[in-house]
């Protein structure tokens, strides 16, 4: 029982990352009709805003280390600590959550520039062209990040207060051995919050209503005198923000490197398609489903019955779903079938 709950948790948390990326991907697809291969790069850019903020906060000054008396030793102390004392230390400690504040405007800007500058010229072009151009863009973004930060992963620490593990077992009256990293719980809560925010935004605001109407029938909406393209541009910006935040919060779980986006991208595409192209609930559902199935398949008990199943489960599920339900779990008819 313990192991099952733990596996579900493990899976949910990876599924949360899939769901967040797939949500943005399918949002862009549903509104603009563009297959965005640069979406993984946005995830990566988000992660690197956290890295950048930490580097900025820890800009340091060399000072003499008084504790060493045998020779002249120097240590680096961040300016923030010098000027603000303990408060400065706390700020550095909270670098990852703080970078959300920077990432939102930054990713929004990146998204808007990308859409206005490049993507919008590709609305009417074949999907193959969209794939190639966004893939090219992803390569360029990756290489730029690699130039600045190198090829190696850069570990990011979560704030000290949530560095350890939560004793989930004790909460629900199970064995004490059931522990789970705090940060992963936070990631899960964060992902759910973002997902709910996006859904609420689309459902309960006038803007969201117009966007949904545009997804259904773009032409009629523009005939009604609404500048739907402009709204869709903003939707692209929102998708970029969602991807960026997903990447940023993922940094303490797995150290970011320049190609992390590509690694996630392919699986996210599978997630989107399994969920059904253009269906937001489908993307979220498929993200969590595949994440959980993957972590179950990596249980030793399962592996001993079906060797190698953990390696292929996601793709196997994708094949089965697509054969049984031609348009994914919640897809609509006629989208991207030609």
């Amino acid at each position: 029982m313990d192991t099952i709950i733990l596996q579900v948790l493990n899976g949910i948390d990876k599924g949360a990352a899939y769901a967040l990326i797939a949500l943005g991907l399918t949002l862009v697809f549903g509104t603009l009709g563009v297959v965005n291969f640069a979406h993984g790069a946005l995830f990566m850019l988000g992660a690197f805003t956290a890295v950048t903020l930490r580097e900025l906060l820890t800009l340091s000054k060399k000072v003499k280390d008084e504790s060493v008396t045998f020779f002249d030793a120097y240590k680096e102390i961040p300016y923030l600590e010098i000027y603000l004392g303990d408060f400065g230390t706390a700020i550095v400690d909270y670098a990852v959550p703080l970078s959300i504040l920077i990432a939102i405007p930054f990713m929004l800007l990146v998204g808007l520039v990308m859409e206005r500058g490049l993507i919008r010229h590709f609305y009417k072009r074949p999907h193959a062209d969209q794939i190639l151009v966004t893939f090219g863009l992803a390569l360029v973004l990756q290489e730029i990040v690699k130039k600045f930060y190198g090829a190696n992963p850069i570990p990011q620490a979560a704030p000290d207060i949530v560095a350890g593990s939560a004793n989930i077992g004790a909460w629900i009256g199970m064995a004490d051995s059931m522990v789970y990293p705090w940060w992963r719980l936070i990631y899960l809560a964060f992902a759910l919050a973002v997902i709910f925010a996006v859904f609420a935004f689309l459902r309960f605001t006038t803007f969201g209503m117009v966007v949904r109407a545009g997804m259904q029938d773009r032409e009629t909406v523009s005939l009604l005198g609404i500048d739907i393209e402009r709204r869709f541009t903003i939707v692209f910006g929102i998708a970029a923000v969602v991807a960026g935040l997903a990447g940023l919060m993922y940094t303490p779980i797995s150290p970011p490197n320049y190609h992390m986006g590509m690694d996630f991208l392919v699986l996210s595409f599978v997630v989107v398609v399994v969920g059904g192209m253009g269906s937001l609930p489908g993307a979220v559902l498929a993200g969590f489903l595949l994440g959980i199935l993957q972590s179950f398949a990596s249980l030793n008990e399962v592996k001993s019955i079906l060797p190698g199943i953990d390696q292929i489960i996601i793709f196997l599920v994708a094949v089965v779903v697509l054969l049984v339900r031609p348009r994914g779990l919640m897809g609509r008819k006629g989208i991207m079938e030609d």
């Binding site: 392919v266 398609v273 399994v274 697509l322 991207m336």
Partner: peptide
Amino acid sequence: IYFSILTLA
């Protein structure tokens, strides 16, 4: 795209 994803899988 469903074909693409099947072949990818």
